[in-house]
Design a protein around this nucleic acid. Sequence first.
RNA 1: GGACAGAUGGGUGAGUGGCUGAAACCAACGGAUUGCUAAUCCGUCGUACUUCGUAAGAGGUACCGAGGGUUCGAAUCCCUCUCUGUCCGCCA
Length: 420
Amino acid sequence: MHDINFIRNNPNDFDKSLKLRNIKPNSSLILNLDKSKRDLLTTSQELRSTRKSLSSDFSKSNEEDKKKLQKEVHKIKEQIDQIESNLLEVDIKIKDILSSLPNLPEEDVPYGEDETNNKLIKTSGDIPSFDFEPLSHYQLGENLKMMDFDQASKVSGARFVYLKKDLARLERALANFMLDIHTINNGYQEIIPPNLVKDEAVYGTGQLPKFAEDLFKTENDHWLIPTAEVPLTNIVLDSILLEEELPKRFTAWTPCYRLEAGSAGRDTRGMMRQHQFSKVELVSIVKPEESKKELDRMLNCATSILDDLKISYRVMLLSTGDMGFSAKKTFDIEVWLPGENKYREISSCSNCGDFQARRMNSRYKTVNGNVFLHTLNGSGLAVGRTLIAVLENYQNKDGSINIPEVLIPYMNGKKIISSV
RNA sequence: GGACAGAUGGGUGAGUGGCUGAAACCAACGGAUUGCUAAUCCGUCGUACUUCGUAAGAGGUACCGAGGGUUCGAAUCCCUCUCUGUCCGCCA
């Protein structure tokens, strides 16, 4: 949600920033509506004031005056009703516009229409070489008979999978490893959040109202979370925090449910793009002046997982056209997948500034009043895709998989996954 | 699912039609005082929007879970919904 005061005071900056996100200017439309809203508001407040003072005279009046007063107030009431219904209409229009415009990018975000303008920030690790043709994760998984897409499609349809035996264990090992790092080394508080949430929560983080078609909804009007970002960030929904509570850092391992409506035909094979996947999420709630450095910190927390797993990756700064709706600035971490012979996204770390906080009405107390918080979220990491990366990077010629050293304790001491 | 009870400012809690934006107490903050810890006294102490003003500031409106209704006037009466608590039933 955008700050109407900012738009009033900086209409040109607002439009310029929107233009960076390839959106046409909006400020004059918004400000016109805002002007008429305030006119209506002033009128209605004056009428209410009159009504109040007339009413307070009532008990002191004689019978005749009482009748007059009743009549008069009736008239005023009709006017108020009329004006306030207009007011409501204008207010809804303004909110509709404000809540459907994406966040404004930070100054150092490169301009671009799409991912082709993303900027490479760093590359880590060498691209591994194999003395055989490396297989894709689904070939490896199916050969091991630990990844079953056929049965999943009978039971649940396309874009689902059964993981079995050591691969099921590996998924759990990865999640536990990530959670341990983030809670013990990185100061995140572990949470098990609700996986079904209400409209308000999904609105708060910005998936609603624009992106309802990407989400699963229950018959009872709950949404299945598309990411733990939603319940974790909404921990501060509609609340006023004390300064000493900040920063707040939360992590959770949850399933994520996505309809993938716009991606028919894309990544149809394998575990790359599923309706359900698990992810370890990181969320930080910080003071406004601290969000920029918190984003760097969060990025480091996420990349450290891949460093520990000894898998190569690169970090991209997303261009204005490739960023998500709520983000001011986003880094993607892309992991090297030998089976695809390219980098694929495994994490996205975003600073949302006060954009979500305004929608959630989340503030903290300062001596100068209550101030909107800044929120950040990042994957740390997408567990399903990390499993893919481990399989493809640690594969052997015979189709077995070496277990990364840091995961061995989490695999009950096992060092290799094989079908025998 | 059934039967009750409840929802008031940071907290406890008073308030059943007008002088209540809301008592009192606690917490918090500012100050005074006692040599320290503590105690006592005085003061301040909700939010949002808005009007006037360069500003300091001065007004106004709304908000007592949410939304409707009754009334000249609603925290207070009526309706609907949501949530919380207790008991019963069912259940991982």
